[in-house]
Design a protein around this nucleic acid. Sequence first.
DNA 1: CGCGGAGACCTTTTT
DNA 2: GGTCTCCGCG
Length: 650
Amino acid sequence: MIDYEQHLNAEQLEVVLSGAGPMLVIAGAGSGKTRALTYRVARLIESGVEPGRILLATFTNKAARSMLSRVESLVDVSLGTLWGGTFHHVGNRILRRHAPLLGYEHTYTIIDDGDSTQLINASVTELGITKCDRFPRGNVIGNIISLAANTRTPIEDVVLQKYPYFFGVITDILKVALRYRMRKRELNVMDFDDLLCNWEELLTEHPDVRERLSERFLHILVDEYQDTNIIQAQILDLLAWNHRNLMVVGDDSQSIYSFRGADFTNIIRFPEKYPDAKIFKLETNYRSTREILHLANMSIVNNEHQFQKELRAVRGEGIRPVFVPTKDVMQQADFVVQRIDELIDEGIALPDIAVLYRAHFHSMELQMEMVRRGIPFEIRSGIRFFEQAHIKDVTSFMRLIVNPLDELAWNRILMLYHKIGEVTARKVWHFISHQENPLGAVFSEDFINCAGRAATPGLTGLRKTLKGIVDLRDGAAIIEAVLDGGYRHYLKEKYQDTASREEDLGQLAAFSLQFDSLEEFLSDLALMTNIAEEREHERAGRGDDKVVLTTIHQAKGLEWSVVFMIGCSEGKIPLARALKEPGGEDEERRLFYVATTRAKDQLYFCHTAVDFMKGMRRRLLDPSRFIKELAPAYADPGEFPFDQWIVDDY
DNA sequence: CGCGGAGACCTTTTT
DNA sequence: GGTCTCCGCG
């Protein structure tokens, strides 16, 4: 038996030991809500609930996994059966079994934003829409469609609210959206939103399935509830239909995903929806020093709408947060690197240090400087592993094997070969898609000549590679065969950094080993952010000795001893673009709040006065309003929540 | 019809 | 810096 009282405080204990029924836990930053969740799952299992009847929905795969492995070590049971993961993950797992009910083949593939942008662009061309006056690009239309789906709002309204200047072409946008939906069906693929929408549809339109699933899940626990959208909340309600043991945990001050439809009224209205819900508050902060917490509290009160709560610090006095005005991004990089060097001398370990920023490109110069100065760092931003060209190329071969009618995959592969471009690829696709056995047709006489002479050498090469992999069902073997079949050569020709790309493919091969089927491997890959991280996790040992560079969004739920927040300037945070949206400033302030509450001991805000962005034109930036509002000129200097660090020649 | 080069344009945040 | 588009050559 676990000695709960030894590991938990009174607030957490109440949550963990509480009985059944709906529960709402309002938990402030650093209050140990993950701890409470973890121990509650352990407690449920200890009290005899079968792991297979617990669903733990979280926001990132990483959070789910770390919670699960913690539970595992607490109760000493294998949790293979426990349903834990992101909504998309769990949705995929359920849809794999039931997709045919919705008219899909069970082998549907998951497509990423790149694929969907491509499909949308193709639809625009197909429909013969003239893009003369400002017609949105594929990815923008994708955003619109996605937001409409996730907020259950008509596309017209989304455009009107977010992109009013595109309203003139709304009929064309609607046509494209319709066509895109059709195309997804034709190709038997789902995008990320479909995983949620179809899941909900499954539960709504098929009462028998809902009955079975909601009977199955005796306890449902949800982390970061403030970041769920309407669809997700609805799914949870449907899944919790029978047993009503729905426990949601969240902090309205940390809602930072409204851009993709998150709606923190979900958390506010929870008590209305479940009048019998027990409400708990975790208001003790264990993470940060008084100074840091004070600053965070001072900042967030500038937001209008929020649950009333005051975080109490248990930790004692520390160092005041520091404001560091610098001249430009170079000097900022210089400062950060220099300070990190000093911290190392003071005995602080690199993994205890993080640099946070609002947008990926804010960290470019810092990255370069860190490389130059030889400080190892790990970057948790930029292009996702799965979305890199070489990864997509290789996985496209696997997609063909799983689903021979995957047009996007065919297209991508065909274009890898010499003398095969858009037009030829289309001809080949036309040929293939009209065969009874599309994959088998590759080995017929007609295939080689289906697109004219020029394409023949390329198609012969493709046929050879496909011959080698067509009977394989093992990811690693396919990667090897594709590399040997000419892709290695292609990489050398096309890219400078061939070695690191080949290394990536090696990682991919190693990662594929833990899956039973190609299908499972592909869908997990699509839903995953960072493979290096996963591999790190497998190796059990702690990560390398590295400083973490990350966006604030991805820093959610994590903590470090020392946090540098770079780019604390007007236009960067709040980001100029984000301010244009309704509620934009408040959301940006919540981001600022999330960033500040990641720090345990030391916190540095760096501001850059000169902005080099737009062309070579210099622009002067003010310090972020979130900094300025903390230090009004009239305040007693003793009340300043931070010190100012004077940088030379600023 | 493929492909390479040049130039424009834009860069939020994520599963 | 990266992606998209246009143009002219082979």
